[in-house]
């Protein structure tokens, strides 16, 4: 009991003591980089539509996302993406490129444990939840629509 109180008091004290860093620079950079990545996506999309006028808007989006994912994986491999992430934070995590980075980075990191147990097993160690939650949530939404459609 006594320890609980002491721990609580200590944790509160530590919270006070933690250096307050200025939030503005990282907010600014996350905005800048995040906006820039979206802008890049829009640019690629519009160029694709311009170059291949007969593909559908939906296919163009598909290609755009694949190109962004490719670029992010490549930058991850080259060791550039983590440098961007250090400055941009949310700006390079939230876009689809962040998803790509979180699949590519453990794959590259655990290459030393072999192709099967390293690259393949560890590939989803960070982005796995994204696929699991996404699949479950979409199935949930689909199920609700199916039930509604019954009536």
């Amino acid at each position: 009991m006594e320890n609980k109180q002491r721990n609580l008091a200590y944790n509160n004290y530590v919270k006070e003591k933690i250096p307050k860093t200025k939030a503005w620079p990282s907010l600014f950079y996350s905005f800048l980089v995040g906006g820039a990545i979206c802008l890049l996506g829009q640019g690629i999309n519009d160029l694709l539509l311009l170059a291949m006028p007969n593909i559908s808007q939906q296919s163009a989006w598909g290609y755009t996302l694949i190109i962004l994912i490719f670029v992010a994986s490549l930058l991850t491999g080259l060791g550039v993406y983590d440098q961007i992430g250090k400055v941009a934070g949310g700006g390079s995590i939230v876009p689809i490129t962040g998803f790509s980075n979180s699949i590519a980075s453990p794959s590259i990191e655990f290459k030393s444990e072999g192709i099967v147990y390293g690259i393949c097993v560890k590939m989803f160690s960070i982005a796995g939840p994204v696929i699991v939650f996404g699949t479950v949530a979409s199935a949930g939404v689909g199920l609700i629509y199916w039930i509604i459609s019954l009536f």
Partner: peptide, 12 residues
């Protein structure tokens, strides 16, 4: 985390 993951280090 893996070295190449683009995350930020907390101030502490």
């Amino acid at each position: 985390f893996p070295l190449e993951l683009g995350n930020q280090r907390p101030p502490t």
